[in-house]
């Protein structure tokens, strides 16, 4: 009796992996997991070859440059501005940014909020690891209270303020169609995060408006935990501070931007 093998899971074909280049991330970093989810969603929606990605600067820069997908590299914090231009000029069906939390919420807070206020028809995928991983683990807006980083050696306290809840914050803006927060610390949360990404992309295809998905990922080298302990830290500390779920989901923005008369 012959036995046939069917591949049921593994790397997407959109990764450039000519058996191959090792993915340039730290051991235990979960950002490539999110990259895999994005590529799976792009393949399932049949947008292979039509999507344009705008990566930010940081750890997330290294992901899209090894994707088999059109990309525009930008300055630090400006992917939303560049994605706006790309979307308006090329009329590509799917334009999305891949950013870190420092890129999107700290130095890129102005572009991100401005794009949301304009109701730009783009999608922002943010990978939040609660610190600046590339430069050595400094405090970022999403660092939780009491977390030790390079610049808060005693733990984030009252001098540094509260962590930023950006999906909830942008959910109050009229031009925003969809915001959600997911995590990839368990297989169940991973499937939910994939559903959030798919929903956000669908909002853009429907022309509903700005959509943002924040996904919490582990950062073992800068949290100074083993990868398995990082998952426990996410489960016990980060998910207590940052609840998962959808915060805004509308089919059409409340006040569409008026088109000037010709």
């Amino acid at each position: 009796m012959a036995v046939k093998k069917e591949k049921v899971a593994g790397g997407s074909d959109l990764w450039i992996r000519p058996e191959f280049a090792v993915i340039p991330s730290c051991p235990g970093c979960q950002e490539p997991v999110v990259g895999q989810l994005i590529l799976e969603v792009v393949e399932e929606m049949g947008l292979d070859g039509e999507a344009i990605v705008v990566p930010g600067v940081g750890c997330t820069t290294f992901l899209p440059v090894i994707w088999n997908m059109d990309a525009v590299l930008t300055a630090h914090g400006r992917p939303c501005d560049v994605a706006t231009a790309v979307k308006r000029v090329t009329k590509a069906p799917l334009v999305f940014t891949v950013q870190g939390d420092g890129d999107c919420f700290a130095i890129g807070a102005g572009p991100t909020v401005s794009a949301a206020l304009r109701g730009e028809n783009i999608t922002v995928i943010t990978m939040s690891n609660t610190n600046y991983g590339t430069t050595g683990g400094q405090m970022s807006p999403t660092t939780v209270t009491g977390q030790r980083t390079t610049t808060t050696p005693e733990g984030r306290g009252e001098m540094q303020g509260h962590p930023a809840h950006v999906p909830e914050l942008l959910g109050g803006i009229k031009g925003v169609a969809y915001t959600a927060r997911g995590a990839v610390n368990t297989p169940a949360n991973l499937q939910k995060a994939k559903r959030y990404i798919k929903e956000a992309f669908q909002k853009q295809l429907d022309g509903a408006g700005f959509s943002l998905v924040e996904i919490i990922v582990a950062c073992p080298p800068n949290w100074h935990y083993t990868p398995i302990d990082c998952l426990k830290f996410i489960d016990e500390t980060l998910l207590a501070e940052f609840p998962l779920g959808e915060f805004k989901n509308v089919d059409r923005v409340e006040q569409p931007i008026p088109v000037p008369a010709q």
Binding site: A9, G10, R17, I23, V184, L190
Partner: peptide
């Protein structure tokens, strides 16, 4: 799914 480095293929 959970492998960050896509070092596993499942058949």
């Amino acid at each position: 799914w959970m492998c960050p480095d896509h070092a596993i293929d499942v058949y």
